[in-house]
Simulated assay, not measured.
Amino acid sequence: MIYFKFPFDEKLYSTDENSDNKAVVFKSFDQTESVDFKGGIFEVENIAERFSGKLLPKDESNFTAETHDEYLEKLQEVIEVIKENQLPKLVLSRRKIFKDFNDINIEESFKNLCRAYPNAFRYIFTQGEKSWIGAFSEVLGKFNKTTHEFETMSLAGTIPVSESWTDKEIKEQKPVSSYIRNVLAKFNANSEMQESETYDHISGNIKHLRTDFKLKINPEDLDLIIEELHPTPAVCGIPKDFCREKIKQFEKFPRELYAGFIRIETDNFIQYFVNLRCAKLYKDSVHLFVGGGITAQSNPEKEWRETELKSEAVLKNLSFSN
């Protein structure tokens, strides 16, 4: 069972499971895992009463979160790899595991998240042993079935809303834009690609640098474009294949659905959202997935603080009873 809201749309949606059409699909970061919700998409008034914290599985993962010192030590190793190989960026993530509660109020938690992030794709689902919640506004792709226009964005760099951009964040975002620009150039269907100025993208208590792209494509190229765009440098690094291997080497836990993407098909659009600012829910714990773009200029302590800040995006909106 899934409930979700589109960006800037406060209508609540679910799926009816009345057909084999895959209305909503969650793909893992490495694309080996897929969570599918079949049928059509329809509007609902409220989350069903039976959709409660009682549905959540127990945490039997035996994972232990990395400590502050462990993560800083690993970041230093990653920075050395970046310098040795002259990488523009490599993305490292971790899990923050929260256990100090008795029950999660699923409905209230989702409502809180929806209020906090009106410009995001917001969802909560339970399927078998998997239960996830998330809200993030990075669009991997949006395809208009009528006009064949394809939109995407370059989103990178993270600082608190009150702070000013530094050279580190600007240098982190530029290669992401360059990567997307080069991918889209291969699929341009005889139309001029539109590219916006880079501007601030506010997401709760933090902001990112954002550049928008739009062009007409051939519909049969849509899957190929998504395949080339994912994982973007914003969740992986540059060059993609090298960074993917280093992520496997350095990260303590599998990313699962974190930094993967969500595909939603409606009558008029096929939309793809990057699955960041998300958490895996259990009866007795919450696994918050957070990460950051590491460059040669990165300061490990500052990167740790950035992940702590990102974890609050979901954690501060969860409703617990102790």
Rank of each mutant, 00 (worst) to 15 (best):
I2P: 05
I2C: 10
F4V: 05
P7G: 07
D9Q: 12
E17V: 00
N21L: 08
K22G: 00
V24M: 01
K27S: 13
S28W: 01
V35K: 13
N46T: 14
R50N: 15
F51Y: 10
S52P: 10
S52K: 04
G53H: 12
L55Q: 12
L55G: 11
P57I: 13
P57G: 13
D59K: 06
D59Q: 09
T67G: 13
E70P: 00
L72A: 05
L72I: 12
K74I: 09
I79C: 05
K83M: 07
L87T: 05
L87M: 15
S93A: 15
S93R: 07
R94A: 03
D100I: 02
I104L: 14
I106Y: 02
I106R: 01
C114S: 14
A120E: 01
Y123L: 08
F125V: 02
E129G: 06
W132C: 06
F136T: 13
S137F: 04
K145W: 05
K145R: 13
F150E: 06
T152N: 12
G157P: 02
I159W: 00
E163L: 14
D167G: 02
E169Y: 05
K171E: 07
I180L: 12
A185H: 13
K186G: 03
K186T: 08
A189N: 15
N190W: 04
F213M: 03
K214T: 12
D221W: 06
L222H: 09
I225T: 04
I226D: 02
E228L: 13
L229W: 02
T232G: 01
I238L: 15
K240M: 03
F242W: 09
E245H: 09
Y258T: 01
Y258D: 00
A259N: 09
F261L: 10
T266Y: 04
T266L: 02
F269L: 14
Y272H: 05
F273I: 01
K280M: 11
K302M: 08
W304P: 00
R305S: 04
T307R: 03
L318W: 02
S319M: 01
S319H: 04
F320P: 05
